[in-house]
């Protein structure tokens, strides 16, 4: 049997801010080719993990491998990353944002970006400053999906976004996923309407992965993700 190397592998990975552990000796191995939901309450270490994967922050201890290599700007050419609470340059139009992508992101397909834009109702000539947060989120998602990369990381892509944009983004993602061999990590604390997309789940709490595995297995054992949240994070819910 061919052994496919994990897309992300953490061994005893730690990152401290002051005395607080954002990642606390995290052991995690995420298989390639999955749509992975990285779930957990705010402050559980999701964003810190993603920032370590994209080389934004340097971990204090432990080992981290992304696509089989230590993370850094060199590996970022294979990653489409939507940062947490990211915005876009307000004076750009959507088209200028895509041209930025075509200039700086290796393998960026400008035509694909325009097709996504049409599919997701993004006006190419509109300036970002004039867009709603939801429209801006669509532009940014396209910036992550238009390059041909093996790994896409979306940090809270649905936070603070109106219903219609959310629908447009989910449709865009499903449309994108067909016929593509890509791994996607999506962090969210809001699972409604997206839980059907995940085929692998990582549950995080206090800088650790408390459960990870196939989502069908999780459903079989614990029920819907909503029930899972209640089972695993009882502490948080009862607070």
């Amino acid at each position: 049997m061919m052994v496919i190397q994990p897309i992300v592998q953490c061994v005893q990975l730690s990152k401290r801010y002051g005395k607080k552990y954002a990642l606390n000796h995290l052991d995690l191995s995420i298989p390639a080719g999955k749509i992975v939901g990285v779930l957990g309450p705010n402050g559980c270490g999701k964003s810190t993990l993603f920032r370590a994967i994209t080389g934004l922050i340097a971990p204090d201890e432990g080992e981290l491998r992304v696509l089989g290599q230590p993370p850094g700007w060199q590996t970022n050419r294979h990653i489409g990353y939507l940062p947490d609470r990211a915005r876009w340059y307000p004076r750009h139009t959507a088209l200028q944002a895509f041209e930025w992508g075509a200039s700086f992101l290796p393998g960026f397909d400008l035509e694909a970006a325009k097709t996504f834009a049409a599919y997701m109702d993004v006006d190419l000539e509109m300036s970002l400053a004039g867009m709603s947060k939801g429209q801006e989120a669509r532009v940014m998602l396209i910036l992550c999906m238009a390059p041909e990369v093996p790994l896409i990381i979306l940090d809270e892509p649905f936070a603070g976004i109106d219903f219609i944009s959310r629908e447009a983004i989910i449709s865009g993602m499903i449309d994108y996923l067909e016929d593509r061999e890509v791994s996607i990590l999506i962090s969210t604390h809001d699972i409604q309407e997206v839980e059907g997309l995940f085929d692998y789940i990582v549950l995080m709490d206090q800088g650790k992965a408390i459960w990870s595995g196939e989502s069908e297995e999780l459903r079989g054992q614990y029920g819907s993700l909503h029930d899972v949240f209640r089972t695993f994070y009882k502490r948080e819910w009862s607070r």
Binding site: I35, I174, D175
Partner: peptide, 9 residues
């Protein structure tokens, strides 16, 4: 997949 909101896989 689009209608059911599930992964195309």
């Amino acid at each position: 997949a689009l209608e059911l909101r599930v992964n195309p896989n």
